[in-house]
């Protein structure tokens, strides 16, 4: 059992974005940037993979962020400080390959900003110049800005509707940095919706800029047992849980990945409808 020590609601818009700081000393000690946990909320819960957004090894805590897009995450969002999560397994997945590359651009889109945070921290600690680009649909949905400023030398922000900083997408900003500002970039790390990662890779590929993409596919066990998370990378089938979650972004078959992400949409919708009814009853 892992107690929720702190709950932060980052955005109250639907779907809500919530952060839990969990008591998990052993996971906090073992965690390296880029790794994730699987959590289960209650006896009937499903296994939900969530990337660790921050940790405090001394206090023995880890942070996880989630958007309430499905029934399981909606119910998770009902939990409060002092409540306990039944199961947390991790850290899972291979850590990010961190070394001194030179200039590293860390791109986070939407709730993907949270998992990019420990990577930016680690890249900065390894002596890289870290420029972060954060993208959100609007100002209210932008999370972790202060944390990312602390973890980066420079932060640039885009919003789809222009409600905060530059109007546009992270790809526009990246393109400007490469083609207009002529900033030499040694590595790009991107985490966000698959479509965003696909287009970031389309921007960096012609300039031969190495790009790591961290994939968030459907998983069941998260330890290499089931293959639900498989993706095609460079023509080969890989398991995101044990071979990843980070891959050479230019080699990933995003279209296949996006199709596979849609497998359970009808079931997810059914579960959300039932969940909403239940919540109305209890409210």
């Amino acid at each position: 059992m892992h107690e929720i020590l702190k709950k932060t609601v980052w955005s109250d818009q639907v779907p809500r974005i919530t952060e839990f700081v969990l008591d998990a000393p052993e996971i906090a000690r073992a965690h390296q940037a880029g790794q994730f946990v699987i959590i289960i909320n209650g006896e009937t819960g499903e296994r939900i993979p969530l990337t660790i957004a921050a940790k405090d090894a001394e206090k023995g805590t880890i942070s996880i962020l989630f958007q309430e897009v499905g029934a399981s995450t909606m119910m998770l969002g009902q939990m409060n400080e002092g409540d306990k999560l039944m199961h947390v397994a991790g850290p899972l997945g291979k850590p990010t390959h961190v070394e001194k590359f030179g200039t590293v651009v860390c791109i986070g889109g939407g709730v993907g900003i949270a998992p990019v945070h420990p990577i930016a921290q680690a890249m900065k600690a390894a002596g890289n110049r870290v420029i972060s680009i954060l993208g959100a649909r609007n100002k209210d949905l932008l999370i972790y800005e202060d944390y990312m400023r602390a973890a980066s030398h420079e932060v640039r922000i885009t919003t789809d509707d222009g409600s905060y900083h530059k109007k546009g997408f992270v790809t526009d900003e990246l393109k400007g940095m490469i083609e207009v500002e002529k900033i030499p970039i040694d590595l790009v790390v991107v985490i966000g919706p698959p479509i965003m990662m696909k287009f970031v890779c389309k921007v960096t590929e012609p300039h031969k800029i190495q790009t790591f993409a961290s994939l968030n596919t459907i998983m069941v066990d998260g330890t290499g047992m089931c293959g639900a998370c498989r993706v095609t990378v460079g023509g080969q089938t890989k398991f995101v849980c044990v071979d990843g979650p980070e891959f050479d972004g230019h080699q990933v078959d995003y279209d296949e990945m996006m199709a596979r992400q849609r497998q359970y949409l009808p079931e997810e919708k059914l579960a959300v409808d039932i969940c909403k009814k239940k919540m109305c009853h209890s409210a």
Binding site: R47, A71, S72, V220, C226, G227, Q263, A271
Partner: peptide
């Protein structure tokens, strides 16, 4: 493994009473 893990370990055969879906 995936099909059986969903059904057995996660009890997806009893979806949506259990949260893990199965087709």
């Amino acid at each position: 493994n995936e099909f059986l893990t969903r059904s057995n370990l996660m009890k997806a055969f009893d979806f949506p009473n259990y949260e893990t879906p199965i087709k």
